[in-house]
Structures are given as structure tokens and as C-alpha cells.
Design a protein around this nucleic acid. Sequence first.
DNA 1: CTGTTAGCGCTTTCAA
DNA 2: TTGAAAGCGCTAACAG
Lengths: 354, 354
Amino acid sequence: MPTSPKKAAADDGVTRPAKPRAIRMRDVAAVAGVDISVVSRVLSGDERLVVRPETRERVLEAVTRLNYRPNIAARALKTARTMAIGMVVPDLANTAYTEIARGADERAAELGYTLLVASGRMQERLPTLEGRIDGLLYAVATSDSTAPHRLPEQIPSLLVNRREPGLGASIIANDEEGVALATQHLIDLGHTHIGLIVADFSVDTHRRRAAGYRRAMRAAGLPDASESILETAFDEAGGYEATLELLRREPRPTALFVARGPTVPWTLGALAACDELGVSVPDDLSLIVLSDVPIADYLRPAVTSLELPLATLGSRAIDQLLRLIDGEAVADAMVDEPPRLMVRETTAAPPGRR
Amino acid sequence: MPTSPKKAAADDGVTRPAKPRAIRMRDVAAVAGVDISVVSRVLSGDERLVVRPETRERVLEAVTRLNYRPNIAARALKTARTMAIGMVVPDLANTAYTEIARGADERAAELGYTLLVASGRMQERLPTLEGRIDGLLYAVATSDSTAPHRLPEQIPSLLVNRREPGLGASIIANDEEGVALATQHLIDLGHTHIGLIVADFSVDTHRRRAAGYRRAMRAAGLPDASESILETAFDEAGGYEATLELLRREPRPTALFVARGPTVPWTLGALAACDELGVSVPDDLSLIVLSDVPIADYLRPAVTSLELPLATLGSRAIDQLLRLIDGEAVADAMVDEPPRLMVRETTAAPPGRR
DNA sequence: CTGTTAGCGCTTTCAA
DNA sequence: TTGAAAGCGCTAACAG
């Protein structure tokens, strides 16, 4: 009894894929003894479908027995819907984006959608995603990645974590409130010279963060001097240099809020700079960072951090995008959930006040 | 002159997507004055196609002018190929996976494929990806995520960063060689009591790492005592506890290699534990970590790390998977590129030897 | 060298 | 309550 040569490979580390003909809907129909259109309607959960319970039963049974899986391409061709959402992020190593993606993914799954994540520049990513997705989320917080000054055409898109006139609808977190909160915490501790590190002001996210800082400072009757705010253009690991620079200014700040990412290298860079200058945290300098991963907890001293509701941002982004896909008008929005300040060990009263 | 209500929205933060009818191939054909099949053949770059240059020109021109983009679903339905590769990783926050994904993405793009990344458990992810991809890469290094003891059926799959009988073909890095290299570095510095932290031995990756350690120790005539190897089951932030535990053992190791991830929290955890015990690095303890992000550089002292060729692993994974997709037999493979030890500031001679 | 044609597998009226 | 039939947009023989 000669065996088919195709199934020769045992499990010896060599895999030769079997290519059995896929089960089609018509196979299911045949087994269930009904027409293919009945199968289609039973499976699509069409509520206004009238079908005898026993018939539906037979269909479902056949589906299970044959392990039938609908052909996505055929369905997409017919319905002009892929039931997938794309998300383009500049860099998967940036934990802020992956946290947003996590929230988006979860919400998308709840609604029967699949989230497809791709990283890189929009110009390169969009073409390969087009046609595979019904809508696009793009998270861009750095000015360099701004590039898509052209809105993705033809496909409903939502800008995440940034608001940009000309780029269509967006969803953001309340960065201003968060930074104000953090600044207030430092003020409450007695600090009067507080440094703020943000990224390029060409991105509104950072202008909003600076606004939060200024609001809190002014409300406390403190100077919101521009030289306390450092606008950092370098995208990479600039935490070290930026912190050095701010700490060289006179009068030297007694507190510092690093309100930009990528958070892991920027946090570590700030700490390295303090170490370099012999500045002790929190004795000589109070430090707050923007965080989105549990890293703050593992550092010694544990770092006080401002947590933006990034997962919620992703989740809400999906809701807004689906509206857009459904043809509704969608305005710029902000997530309700407030940022939370996690006070740990790097914030204390300033040197003079103890 | 009544405007269409559809295009009412200006750029006031309110976006209402225009839904113009998509350009089809037949539109291009009409404009170019040729048959649709000619367009198809010109676009597919069919080499054995004979077409007058001017005709091809007209077609290409029409494509550009109309900004035609082929309908992916229709093509996929016809060819039974999606030209997309799926990759399922347990967690996007784990930088090892994102680095593998980066390499895979790059290589896939080179070959005209799109990499679709999804995170989560296989059982949940696979169904939503099926039908959208021609093949699947799955990276799983922890035993918990093992779950897919059932091979993804019907779809060519490759296990990445792990080798598991019963799960089909795989691609791995030379973890054994890497760990041997790191261990040798510590031995060369004069260490004789070297601790090793790995994860669950149920995953071969960690057995191979332990083997590399043992090989180096034995080659140097040193005891490769089992109590120097700590098998850590917890997946999360266990670096702190694991390090504490290993440093409590007698005789206390003078060097430690944390050969497991997720690297950021495990590295920070190890450092926190040293801090806790008043153990100075590298004076009292030399430390090497497994790394895949530049974090090692930003810590003070900068951490010596073993760099596995993860991007290359991803790139080779694509090559192997495409072979599988083409119906070739594919065996387990290992990336050629050797791991590299980046000696920084956390490794030095042991206390007694200076 | 270019056009005709037959589907790919599914959804969705419409008819029975 | 179920079946028939017409495509969705594209590719790939094959015919001219």
C-alpha cells in the first residue's frame, strides 16, 4: 500500500506542509443537506432570518465536523469589508505605542475586529496595509514622523495621541492635566525651581504638556520661565544630555519632570546624568518621569511617574475609528480617564526645606 | 447651488470620510484603451509577456493618473495568496520579540510581503489571522505560552527562538554559544563561582543556555554545580527575587549572568537586589545580562551584555517560512551570526583577585 | 501582441 | 422556510 509521497515527513524536525483542499461553504452545505445560502445566513447570525432550529442545528454541526473556516478574501471581496483595523506606529520598541496598541487590540477584538500592527513610516506602511484594513490608527508623537502631512486618502483614519489641524480627526489623552498634576505635586513639596523636558513644540502633545506646567506654576504664583522648559529635538536617547543641560542652568532646578519618551532610555539617561554630576535623587533633585511600563518600580530609588491612560486611549481610538468607518462625522476627542501620578521615591522636599 | 451634504465637513476637527467609488482595473483598461487582462499582465510584471512598449506605457500612465490600487481581496481570492505573513508574539512590551519582528518585517518587505504582527495567545490570535496570511511565525520562549501544543493546522508555520519536537520546523539563535562566551569572559576575569539565571527548563532555549554555561565551566575545570543555576518559573518581574535568592546561597557567587528576559525588568530587578544587599557592582559582583535594547548603555554603571542576533533571527525566519509556503521541506535551523558580548562596566575581577 | 472567458468563495436579493 | 442566481475585482488559460 503505497503512501502518498506528500505525507512522507514524520516529525523529525522536517516539516512539509500538507496542502489539503480547504473546506468551502458548499461542502458544509452538502453535508448539512441545505443550500449554501442557508449556511451563509446561519453563520452570519442574520437575526431576521427564519430557519428551522433543526436545520440550523445541522448546519452548525456540519461546520464543526468539517472544521470549516470562512474564506476571508472571498468575504472581503463581496462585502468590501475586511473586519481588520490597521495601526501604524513609528517604533515597536517605544512602550508608549505598544501600550496604546494593547488597548486598541483589546477593544477591537471585543467588537469582532482584528488589529494589525505595523511599524515604520506611514509612507511605506500604508501601501502594504491598504486593502487589508477598513480603517487606520496612526500614533505619531515625534515631529520627524510627522511626514504624513498628507492624510491617508481613501481610508478612514484617526490620529492617536496628537492633534493636528489638517490631519483629520484625532484622539488624545489629557496631557495638560497630567503635567499640571505632576507639577503641582512638586510645588506642594516646596519646589520653586522646576525643570521640564518635553519634545519638539511642533507637536501639539508637547505644547499641551508645557501648558499644563505653566498653568500649575502660575497658579502657585511661581515663575514659569521659559528657560526652565527644555524643548528637545533629538528623538533617540537624549535623556542624558538634556538632563545635563538643564542641571547646568542657573539657578539649578531642584526638581525635574521628564515629560517625553521613549520613556525607558530617557528615564535612565536622566538618572545617569544625575549620577554623573553627583546629584543625588531625591536629596538634591526630585524626579518625575512619564511612564507606561512598570520600569519605574524596578529602579532604586523607585521613580515617581505620571501615568497617562494609554490603553484607554487605544480603546477609545477604536471606537472613534469605527464611527468614522460607518460614515459618521467624528470630531477630535479626549479620553475622559484622568492621568494618575504614582508617587514613589524620587520626589521629596527640596534641599533647603528640610 | 446646493452642495452635497456629504462633503459638508471642512477641516474643523470633524472628519467625514468621502467614499468615492474605488478605481477598478477595468477603469484603467478603459482609460488606456486596452483590455483588462492586458492591464493585469502588465501590472503583475509577467516576464514572458509580450506587449508593445507603447501599450505598456499607456497602461502605466493610466494607473498613475487614476491612482489605481489593486483590490487585495480580489487578488487573494483568485490566487489563494495574500502576500502577508503573520507573526504572533506573546507580548509587544517584550523587546526581544519586537527586535525579532523588526528583522522579520524588513526581510518580508524586501521580498514583497507584508508582516502583520499580533500579540497575545496563539489560540486567540490565530483564528483572526487565518485567511489573512500565507504563513505564520510564532515566537514563544516562555513555557506558559507554550499552549499551542497543537500545531497551527492548514497554515505553514515556523517556531521562532525555540525548538520543540512536535511543533514543526523552527529557527533559533545560538544561545548555547552565546552563554558559553559570556561565561568564558567571567572565567577569564578570574571568577570561579558564577551564578546563572535562566527560565523554565521545559523550554529548550533555556536548556541550551544552561548547556553553554556548563560547557564553559567544565572546560575551565570549574564545578558546574546545579545550585549555581537558578531556573525561574515566574515570567514577570522576578529579577529582584531571583537575584536575592542566588546571592544568599553559599558560597555567594562573585558573578552573575541573567540569561533570561524580559530583559528590561529583569536587569533592573537584578540591580535593585544588589542595591538591597549592599552588593556593589562590579566590585562585589560582576553582572552580565541578556540584552536586546540599548538600555544596557544607559545604566550606571553601563551593563555588560550578551547580544543575540535577534533581528537576523527574524530575517532568517522569513526565509525559512517562505520555503515552507512554497511547499519545500524545511528543517530546524540555527542562525549563523554569532552572539556578541558587549563588555561594559559591570564585569571585573572578583574581590579576592585584585 | 491582445481579447475572451471562466471562475476564486462568498453574500444577498429575489423567487419559490 | 429554503433555493437560485448574480456578481464582488481579479488572474490565467486559451483563442484569436
